[in-house]
């Protein structure tokens, strides 16, 4: 239903563009419509159950930046997910929550959430709607109980009216809160980097080094950092450690064969989403490439692809520089500056 609407809208845009250029009054405003980029797979998010509207999106945005979600009104989602750096956390290796409590993992960048099968470094959450419950209730993030959050919202001077406008409800409950947040996070589509414009033949050219980097990336990296999302969404051990303080995927599957495996992260906007890896141990892309080239550790669950004649992915200094040049083309400033995501207050 929703999809049909989008196709219809896209179709009409197509028509509008093909007849006359100056007739732009007829172009529908897609600011609050989820549009799948041409080079992307189908979304996984259940938009049929939670159709995006301007009211719902703006409500989700307001909540995202509201520290009311935390126990002492000090931490909002935006504290750990900053739009200027693709909703990652530029300041901390492990995330920091209420009372300065140190978390267990690095806050990942948020982009293209509507296309993911599972969430978190260990894939413990299987639907975008349920992601915020962790942040709200973990004592090292927001440290608040969801029931208290719902009470605070229902007793607030403005939220009841905003939920009424977005969802036509008189009482706020958890699914409505989660739906509003998902409308905001599911709309975070990053697909207008220089790389995208090049790949979609939109008139963008890549430099020689960038093209060489793209080729190297395709042969050495894209088996894991695959496709338009730059992740095959599998769980792998890329050789960061010999023993594991964080069991990673095994926390969820409880399988020894998953010890030390983490979700292959998307590399969109990667040049600006440092620090890197599940614990934020690397601060630069040079460090990351040195890791793959010279720093891979042997362990029982190390990925087969990193066990050639020599551990890891051997790279010359030129190759490293070319890959980094390519990774820089994934930075999407339209996304990091998109006014619709900006905190209105």
């Amino acid at each position: 239903m929703n999809k049909l609407l989008i196709y219809f809208l896209l179709f009409t845009i197509g028509l509008a563009q093909s007849c006359s250029k100056d007739d732009d009054d007829t172009e529908p405003d897609l600011t609050y419509t989820f549009v799948k980029p041409e080079n992307f797979p189908e979304p996984t998010y259940t938009f049929d159950n939670n159709p995006v509207t301007q009211e719902g999106f703006e409500l989700g945005r307001r909540i995202f930046f509201d520290p009311l979600l935390s126990i002492d009104n000090s931490v909002s989602c935006g504290n750990c997910h900053n739009q200027a750096v693709a909703f990652s956390d530029p300041q901390h290796t492990l995330s920091i929550g209420v009372d300065g409590k140190v978390g267990i993992r690095n806050a990942p960048a948020l982009a293209n959430m509507a296309f993911m099968d599972e969430f978190f470094w260990d894939g413990g959450v299987t639907h975008l709607d349920f992601v915020p419950l962790n942040a709200i209730e973990a004592d090292f993030e927001m440290g608040e109980e969801i029931a208290n959050v719902i009470d605070k919202l229902n007793n607030h001077s403005e939220y009841p009216q905003l939920f009424k406008e977005a969802f036509d409800v008189d009482t706020i409950n958890t699914p409505r809160l989660l739906h509003a947040l998902s409308q905001y996070t599911a709309m975070m589509v990053s697909a207008t980097s220089r790389y995208d414009k090049y790949i979609r033949n939109e008139g963008e050219e890549l430099t020689e080094d960038e093209l060489a980097g793209l080729q190297l990336f395709e042969t050495k990296c894209s088996s894991c950092h695959e496709g338009a999302l730059f992740t095959d969404q599998s769980y792998r051990n890329n050789g960061l450690d010999e023993t594991f303080d964080d069991r990673g995927r095994a926390t969820i599957t409880e399988l020894e064969s998953d010890e030390g495996k983490f979700k292959v992260p998307s590399l969109r906007n990667v040049a600006i989403t440092d620090p890197y890896m599940h614990d934020g141990r690397f601060f630069t892309l040079e460090q990351v490439l040195n890791h793959y080239s010279e720093g891979v550790w042997e362990s029982a669950t190390l990925d087969e692809e990193l066990r050639g004649d020599q551990l890891g992915i051997p790279l010359t200094e030129t190759e490293k520089a070319q890959i980094i040049a390519f990774l820089n083309t994934l930075t999407d400033t339209d996304f990091t500056r998109d006014p619709k995501f900006i905190n209105p207050r």
């Binding site: 259940t46 299987t126 959050v149 719902i150 958890t174 739906h179």
Partner: peptide, 25 residues
């Protein structure tokens, strides 16, 4: 009950539900 997204009533963690946040279900 999980893959259709957030749900209300006996599935609402602020009401009656018992939900594992870390291993969603």
């Amino acid at each position: 009950g999980i893959q259709e997204g957030a749900a209300g009533g006996i599935l609402d963690p602020a009401a009656d539900a018992w939900f594992w946040n870390w291993n969603a279900g």
